[in-house]
Write a protein that binds this DNA or RNA. Structure first.
Length: 810
RNA sequence: GCGGAUGUGGCGGAACUGGUAGACGCGCUGGAUUUAGGAUCCAGUGAGCUUUGCUCGUGGAGGUUCGAGUCCUCUCAUCCGCACCA
């Protein structure tokens, strides 16, 4: 008997795989392709359990797909620009590059310790010049094609990181990195025109492969499509008109006032016209002093100010008052609304507070009268709506009213989206410099391609007090205009790191190309990614941005793909002590200890076994003992099997074992295909228990069953626990397990000759008895009569399901 | 408020097209072994009862069915995302 020395074996196999370059992928192989991608990590320094889960799941897929004959591409790299490196530099004085690269090295060692296979020749890192050169190149392509632009806009400003943030990075008014309060600032910033793709990003979700429902729904929500009408409200005694958007044109006759946002661009004109200037000015300044978050959450009580002006309801020709109120958002729709208090609760609250008329124009089908206490926001029959009375809201009436608006040249049908353009400027050091130059004569000019990359300058002081840290480097800032050659200045902002990660999966296909960002031929052959695996936290941000990038590059004729990721698997989060594991919260569980005490294979098995991979789980290491025990037992069992004396004949125990083995092949394969790794692991534990039973009762084994047991158990285990399965396989067959194929089911040997018949009376189980498979109803009835004295005639009817149950009813 | 999901033993979780609820594992109880602890092995482990057996039991209430964790209607709770989005 030999011992299962997991540390020794794991080390041995990891170096074997590295030496034979097992993870290497030849893109031109004749085998069918399979692009298996795990989200590349931010190099925080140590792997945490979320990484372990991600890369274990990914490696199960890689190894399984290889065994069933695919040419698997499984690359790995680093999302290596970003705030923490810079913050550490400020704190410790270590250069962000050194800091980041040290951490990458450490994490890479740990990933290798987990036993996962990657094609390390394709490793990319976002912070390297070879990579960010091409990020800049792609940015310039977007800029040259009106997909990147700079404009003044109210933006989210993190008071602690001292940088602007994208909408997607603001969580309940706080910075998603540091939790500090986010305020609004008006700044000149860079945007990518993701909103041009709103409709395609939305409709694409219907044609995409297998994506989790919750991720699709989060993206749908975020894009936020609303269908309705847009029309103009004429301000009486003036030449201004205000454009409004509504999803409820069917309630237009109920409009009794109009509201515009305090930030509205017509505010200056309104101020000029109004006799209520003092109050308006006060209101606007008090609204602007509040953060957007405050305005939305601190008080639900609506406030506003009357302009004293009137607009005309275009369908009734009535004059109605125009108000200013901050419950109307400048960023959505047109920044102005038609207010229908009878059928919108917010307008209702506002009208009640300021004593504005409330008019009912939709009848609640479930209630007589009805808007005395609250607005009726549902659909129903139109009333008080002139010749539209009697129509049904919402579709019919809306389309009729839109038709009327269109014919009268007042408005038209309109669709709006909540998705806004992606703000990518960051006032930080450790990021990709924006490769644009400001020239007094030529304006904003892209750097010449041959001058890329625009290198991140060396600076001493990373703190961004006022502008960007890059503005402190004069040699960086002062350049000659790429167009006219006159003195000019560089942009000093860096890009959001999500720009880097929006195309890394394309760079992997040709990571060392010094001529182009990627090789179109490879992209067109290998994209979309067949299986993308990562955490739900990227449901909106990264997954939406990457989809946009691919579509934009397609429209620039650079690639011929519509979507980056065909199938997405999003693993649940692993929490510890109630919250997400993170260094700042100090609730990290370090995998290193488990590598030493239980082994990488036991850790992999446990993390797969603990829950369905899409579920979030609370980390609890109680069960890891179980998977370790399983591996020790399996080691001993298979060694015992291999040492059993071989004979030619088979007994019934061996036939049973053979059948069980086939059932296991069938079950593990099905579970693997459906990402049900927890049950696949339990199948492996069950076959191990069967082997234990066999050994207990038998001292010899047929050579055929011996071989198929050893071989198939190792192969089935291999994707989950690659080290131990490789070792056992090599000891018995003297070849590498990776040169073999995934086992297939022998259909002759998958069904047991007998089954346990369940005997029910009135649907309740009364007896169970072993019966031969295939017996007919009369034979079973005879069996039940003999054993349980059940007489068919005494019952009203008998229900029989072959090879399953018999139920006596009556 | 809107959208998505999830509710099964002490715990993590199984259960294919409706057909033995609780697989597999953790924990726990008893026993064997051990100087002791650990490890290992054997047996037991949903609850209740009048214990050769019976009754109840998958968040709750109804319904369909010979038969429901699974299908239908209503309802409650938890988690996640978005949220004054017109």
């Amino acid at each position: 008997m030999s011992d299962y020395k997991f540390s020794e074996f794991e080390k041995k196999w990891q170096s074997n795989w590295a030496n034979s370059n097992l993870g290497k992928c030849d893109l031109n192989s004749q085998k069918p392709k399979f692009y298996n991608l795990c989200m590349y990590p931010y190099p925080s320094g140590d792997l945490h359990m979320g990484h372990i889960r991600n890369y274990t799941i990914g490696d199960v897929i890689t190894r399984y797909k290889k065994l069933i004959g695919y040419n698997v591409l499984s690359p790995m790299g680093w999302d290596s620009f970003g705030l923490p490196a810079e913050n550490a530099a400020i704190k410790t004085g270590i250069h962000p590059k050194k800091f980041t690269e040290d951490r990458m090295k450490n994490m890479k060692d740990q990933i290798i310790r987990l036993g996962s296979l990657y094609d390390w020749d394709r490793e990319v890192a976002a912070h390297t010049e070879e990579y960010y050169k091409w990020t800049q190149y792609l940015f310039i392509q977007l800029f040259n094609n009106d997909l990147a632009y700079k404009k003044d806009a109210p933006v989210n400003w993190c008071t602690s990181c001292k940088t602007v943030l994208a909408n997607e990075q603001v969580i309940e008014g706080n910075c998603d990195r540091c939790d500090a309060i986010v305020t609004q600032k008006n700044l000149n910033q860079w945007f990518l025109s993701i909103s041009k793709y709103s409709e395609e990003l939305l409709s694409g979700l219907n044609d995409i492969g297998d994506w989790p429902e919750n991720v699709k729904s989060m993206q749908k929500n975020w894009i936020g499509k609303s269908v309705g009408a847009q029309f103009n409200l004429e301000v009486i005694d003036s030449d201004i008109s205000i454009e409004v958007f509504t999803t409820r044109p069917d309630t237009l006759f109920g409009m009794t006032f109009a509201v515009i946002s305090p930030e509205h661009k017509l505010m200056k004109n309104i101020l000029d016209l109004s006799k209520n200037q003092e109050n308006i000015k006060n209101y606007i300044s008090s609204a602007s002093s509040k953060s957007e978050f405050e305005r939305m959450s601190i008080t639900k009580e609506k406030t506003g100010v009357d302009t004293g002006l009137f607009v005309i309801n275009p369908l009734t020709n009535e004059s109605i008052p125009l108000w200013i109120a901050d419950y109307v958002l400048i960023n959505y729709g047109t920044g102005a609304i038609m207010a229908v208090p009878g059928h919108d609760q917010r307008d209702y609250d506002f009208a009640k507070k300021y004593n504005i008329e409330i008019k009912q124009v939709i009848k609640d089908p479930n209630k007589e009268g009805g808007i005395e206490l609250e607005a009726y926001t549902g659909h129903g029959e139109l009333v008080n709506s002139d010749n539209f009375d009697g129509l049904n809201s919402h579709e019919e009436a809306s389309s009729q009213i839109i038709k009327k608006l269109t014919e009268s040249n007042i408005g038209s049908a309109k669709t709006t989206y909540r998705l806004r353009d992606w703000l990518i400027s960051r006032q930080r050091y450790w990021g990709c410099p924006i490769p644009l130059v400001n020239c007094n004569k030529c304006g904003l000019v892209a750097e010449n391609i041959e001058n890329l990359p625009v290198k991140l300058p060396e600076i001493d002081d990373y703190l961004n007090t006022d502008g960007s840290p890059l503005s402190k480097s004069e040699s960086f800032v002062n350049v000659n205009c790429p167009e006219c050659g006159n003195p000019a200045t560089r942009e000093t902002d860096t890009m959001d790191t999500f720009v880097d990660s929006s195309w890394y999966f394309m760079r992997y296909l040709d990571p060392k190309n010094s001529e182009k960002p990627f090789n179109e031929e490879h992209i067109n052959n290998w994209l979309p990614v067949d299986q993308y695996i990562g955490g739900v936290e990227h449901a909106i941000l990264h997954l939406l941005y990457s989809r946009f990038f691919v579509k934009a590059l397609r429209d620039l004729d650079m690639v011929k793909v519509n979507e980056p990721f065909e199938n997405l698997f999003s693993q649940g989060m692993i929490n510890f002590k109630g919250s997400k594991m993170s260094k700042s919260k100090g609730n990290i569980v370090d995998p290193e200890g488990y590598f030493k005490s239980h082994g990488a294979d036991a850790l992999r098995l446990y993390i797969l076994f603990m829950a369905p991979p899409s579920d979030g789980v609370e980390w609890n290491d109680g069960g890891i003992e179980g998977t370790r025990r399983f591996l020790f037992k399996l080691w001993d069992n298979l060694e015992t099997i291999s040492e059993l004396e071989e004979i030619d004949s088979k007994n019934s125990d061996e036939e049973k074992l053979e059948i069980y083995l086939n059932q296991t092949i069938d079950s593990v394969t099905k579970h693997l295909e459906k990402f049900e790794f927890n049950t696949a692991v339990s199948d492996l534990m069950k076959i191990n228990n069967q082997i234990t039973d066999y050994i207990k009762n038998n001292k010899v084994i047929s050579s055929e069953v011996k071989k198929s047991t050893l071989q198939n158990v190792c192969l089935l285990l291999n994707p989950f626990a690659p080290h131990i399965s490789s070792e056992i396989f090599q000891r018995n067959f003297n070849t590498e397990i990776t040169e073999h194929n995934w086992p297939s089911v022998n259909k002759e040997k998958i069904k047991n000759p007998t089954y346990e018949l369940v005997v029910q009376v009135n649907g309740k189980k009364k007896h169970a008895i072993e019966a031969s498979r295939g017996l007919q109803q009369t034979e079973i009835e005879q069996l039940c009569f003999e054993n349980f004295k059940l007489v068919v005639k005494e019952y009203k009817k008998v229900i029989f399901v072959q090879d399953k149950i018999i139920n006596y009813v009556g």
